[in-house]
């Protein structure tokens, strides 16, 4: 099987299941360890962003994550039915050259994602947000 998928609820407690899912994928694909850390990080940032910002109705929602290995790249797709929400636009890149006193505490999540993945793209399809990430192996 080349495609791995998991459906998570929009609750932070689901991070544990996300971690298990990534661990299993990296193990089965026999990917080097650095992928484990970085995939965990990227998916945590994307998932928590969605949980914190995509839903305002207080209802339970599903977040669908698939990872597929295509030749020498990993293609990750994250899908939710929250309000239109482009995480690539939400946070301006933090100014990492600022002196400490002026450095903002936030804005790091998407900055890390952009730096760890070769491609990050967002589109809205009907009532769904679809984020696609590509990481070269």
């Amino acid at each position: 099987m080349s495609k791995y998928a998991i459906t998570l609820h929009n609750r932070i407690e689901e991070l544990r299941r996300l971690e298990e899912f990534v661990n299993e994928f990296v193990l089965e694909k026999r990917l080097p360890d650095c992928n484990l850390f970085e995939l965990n990080l990227v998916l945590e940032e994307i998932f928590t962003n969605i949980v914190f910002y995509a839903f305002k109705d207080g209802e339970a929602h599903d977040i669908l994550i698939t990872i597929e290995q295509q030749d020498s790249a990993l293609c990750i797709r994250v899908e939710d039915d929250g309000m239109p929400f482009d995480p690539t636009l939400r946070e301006p890149p933090p100014d990492i050259d600022k002196p400490l006193e002026e450095r903002d505490i936030g804005g790091l999540g998407i900055h890390l994602v952009r730096n760890l993945m070769q491609e990050v793209s967002y589109r809205r399809e009907g009532d769904r947000n679809i984020l696609t990430l590509i990481r070269k192996l």
């Binding site: 990080l41 940032e45 006193e101 505490i105 936030g106 890390l112």
Partner: peptide, 19 residues
């Protein structure tokens, strides 16, 4: 073993307060 942006924020905030 692992840190995400949430952990980095805790470190940065601690650094600012100690400074």
């Amino acid at each position: 073993e692992y840190i995400s942006s949430s952990g980095l924020r805790v470190f940065l905030s601690l650094l600012k307060r100690t400074a």
